[in-house]
Design a binder for these strands. Structure first.
Lengths: 122, 122
DNA sequence: CGTCGTTATGCATATCGGTACATATCGAAA
DNA sequence: TTTCGATATGTACCGATATGCATAACGACG
């Protein structure tokens, strides 16, 4: 089952002008690694292939080495996989997410208590 | 002068379904605190008064107590100010930003080195 | 008691991110 | 050599989000 609040914090990192990575691109990279295809990753995430492909292009353009290598043709029609750089970037992002969630959990709890979602108990 | 990369990380926190706070609302709260007016804060941030007001409404609705109190009329025409809750929320968010920036600085530096922005030096 | 700048709110419009669709290309396997 | 599914890319359209503008109410002060 999913937790009540899926993600407490959304982290978006600006690495350079126009080069950003957030939950969307990270999840896409992960989906590509797991499915071995850009289109399957896009379907899984409920986004159009157009957009998935464009995100991959943006990522590949943003880094010195491509994060995703795609191939056309073949019995499976083609496919895609993460490069070493791709795995490195994805893992670094996940690590940032974990660290962030850890250090801000206190403030999150404090602020959630002020939310109108949670009735006052005085 | 501004730093080369204005903000390394954008942090958006989900406190409850529909209740979120990120850089935009935090900056808006800060601008309201400093200018004493929703419209002046909106102008400073380059957004329409309409939107600034709606963001304030969203914030006030999301918490048990309002974060911003506004008044109409008077010699100045009216104005707005943060409540104690407003200051608490803003300060908690800033603290989360600081902590986050601290713990992810290592990964940021690693990833920036992979950016096509920075030429390879082999 | 009229002036002034702000809050508050509705509505029409513009902008932009994303989708939908259409087409071309590729290459291993049957 | 035909088939198949995926990559690659262009174009038209849609919908959400934000702006622009218009209007009303407000109230201390001169």
């Amino acid at each position: 089952m999913e937790p009540a609040v899926p993600a407490l914090a959304h982290l978006r990192v600006v690495l350079a002008p126009g080069v950003e990575i957030g939950p969307g691109k990270a999840d896409l990279l992960e989906a590509i690694a797991e499915t071995g295809s850009i289109s399957a990753a896009g379907r899984r995430m409920g986004m159009s292939y157009r957009r998935a492909w464009q995100l991959v292009e943006t990522l590949n353009d943003g880094f010195r080495e491509p994060l995703v290598i795609a191939s056309r043709g073949g019995n499976a029609g083609g496919g895609a996989a993460l490069t070493d750089a791709g795995r490195t970037v994805l893992e670094a992002y996940r690590e940032m997410q974990r660290k962030t969630a850890r250090v801000i959990s206190g403030e999150i709890a404090s602020l959630r208590a002020l939310t109108s979602d949670i009735p006052d108990e005085t």
